[in-house]
């Protein structure tokens, strides 16, 4: 076969594999649970990255597999290959394409980032205090509880602090992960979109009890949240 034929055959295989796999992943939800606007953004970023990764991955895999199949030297071969030291077109093309891909990914990621962390406006503020190995949540009216209750459809501002070492509040369904650092105040934002009870955990190694440092978050509409807050006020069920 001529070099050109080799190139075309491999390119065809690459195109088909890329197109098929891109089509497959484009429609998939990758995050296991999505219950907030922020988590939606994160899932969309995941999908986009996976779609873009497919042609890159296949390029390398097809290149390797095709060469392994077609360019294997016969046993006892003593010939050398063609003395090609480079190819300006390919080199420039590769640089341009990877650069553009990267810039595209960056722009998309920056837009997502601004959506998650950018607009620093929120209408419900919860103070989160971490200690080895517990979480405490304090609501606007001063009430404190051991698990988190959030209103549906409002943008929530989480204000995190830690008493001892670094912890990290991770609420997967809400798309939140933020360290709580002693001596600092850190922030996270989330806009719950789906009512329900979700798990949460500490994501930063914080010593012996790190494994067990979990929490739950309940998303409910404003009315039942108010009811819960009132009831907690009357007879606290947990926390301090």
């Amino acid at each position: 076969m001529t070099p050109r034929r080799h190139l075309l055959t491999a390119a065809a295989a690459w195109l088909v594999l890329s197109a098929v796999s891109m089509a497959v992943v484009a429609g998939v939800q990758i995050l296991p649970e999505i219950a907030s606007r922020e988590a939606e953004v994160e899932d969309a970023a995941f999908v986009l990255l996976t779609v873009v990764s497919m042609p890159v991955l296949w390029f390398v895999v097809v290149g390797l597999a095709y060469s392994a199949l077609r360019f294997r030297a016969p046993a006892g071969d003593v010939e050398d290959g063609p003395p090609v030291h480079g190819h300006r077109g390919f080199q420039a093309g590769w640089l341009v394409v990877t650069f553009l891909l990267v810039i595209g990914l960056f722009v998309y990621g920056a837009v997502g980032l601004l959506e998650i962390r950018g607009a620093q406006s929120a209408d419900f503020e919860v103070h989160v205090r971490a200690e080895q190995w517990k979480w405490h949540y304090t609501y606007p009216d001063g009430l404190t509880s051991a698990d988190l209750h959030l209103p549906l459809g409002r943008r929530v501002h989480l204000v995190l602090e830690s008493d001892d070492v670094i912890h990290s509040l991770w609420l997967p369904a809400l798309g939140v992960k933020q360290d709580a650092v002693p001596g600092r105040v850190t922030q996270a934002y989330t806009t719950p979109t789906l009512a329900g009870i979700y798990g949460g955990r500490c994501a930063e190694l914080c010593g012996f009890g790190h494994t067990g440092m979990t929490t739950t978050v309940e998303i409910e509409d404003q009315a039942s949240l108010d009811a819960w807050l009132q009831q907690e006020e009357a007879e606290p069920s947990s926390g301090s």
């Binding site: 994160e42 990621g109 998650i116 991770w170 798309g175 939140v176 994501a203």
Partner: peptide, 17 residues
């Protein structure tokens, strides 16, 4: 390639640690 997932802040929030 998976490093690029981590470099992207929206996905790193999910994946970090």
């Amino acid at each position: 390639i998976t490093g690029v997932y981590l470099a992207d802040v929206p996905t790193d929030i999910v994946l970090s640690d």
